[in-house]
Design a protein around this nucleic acid. Structure first.
Lengths: 111, 111
DNA sequence: AAAAGTACATAGCTATACAATGTATCTGCG
DNA sequence: CGCAGATACATTGTATAGCTATGTACTTTT
């Protein structure tokens, strides 16, 4: 019951945070989709389904926060690398401000 | 454009965090709906629409995390007070653990 | 040759914040 | 007195976004 609620809740928290997390990870390093999932999992223990990441990246592209470029591989499927745009960097800064405020607020009420 | 994206993003971050915030605020003090909105605004600067809070509290009730009781007023509309259940308290602890981990992870990737 | 991993992508489902709207009561002000 | 604004609850409809399931295609491992 309760386990189920917490599970759903975590999924809801991801709504929004994932965009923030992805932009943060892309800030200093470009990654392709599959690799981005692995990086995020490694750094945050958060697992993103592929069906979540690809639509997410397309939204961020549509909003002009990232661009993408195909890179051919010596062997195998070409990889689509994602890069932060200047708008993306600027947006990330605004998001960080909001996040820090939220963090502080929650710290205040959760003791 | 970008302002619009950030605005929508904040709304998405609220999905999930609001339940967490409400439970935190109710942990040590019972409040009625309207007052809860004011308390949250005062403590976190986060504004919750009434159309958000009432369905939220009904969900939390259905999940047995809070109970409610009507309290008649000497004058005016009776108030519906919300109280954390033991299940609610336990769930809150699990949520806090997840939140602290998330906070730590984001701190790690955002510098 | 089959299974598992890499790599991209989409469709349908579900949960939830918010605006808009509605009901009802009380208080302050001209 | 009458009315605007605050108090207090609630519902409906819409948009957003994560997740499961599914699909394609290539490579590596067994």
């Amino acid at each position: 019951m309760n386990v189920d609620f917490v599970h759903k809740w975590k999924s809801q928290v991801k709504k929004g945070t994932l965009a923030f997390i992805a932009l943060n990870v892309l800030k200093d390093h470009e990654y392709y989709g599959y690799e981005l999932i692995e990086q995020i999992k490694k750094n945050t223990q958060i697992e993103i389904a592929e069906g979540t990441l690809y639509p997410l990246m397309n939204r961020l592209k549509k909003e002009n926060l990232v661009t993408s470029k195909w890179v051919e591989q010596a062997s195998g499927i070409p990889r689509k690398y994602y890069v932060l745009t200047p708008t993306g960097e600027e947006t990330l800064l605004q998001m960080r401000t909001f996040w820090l405020d939220l963090e502080k607020s929650i710290k205040k009420i959760s003791k």
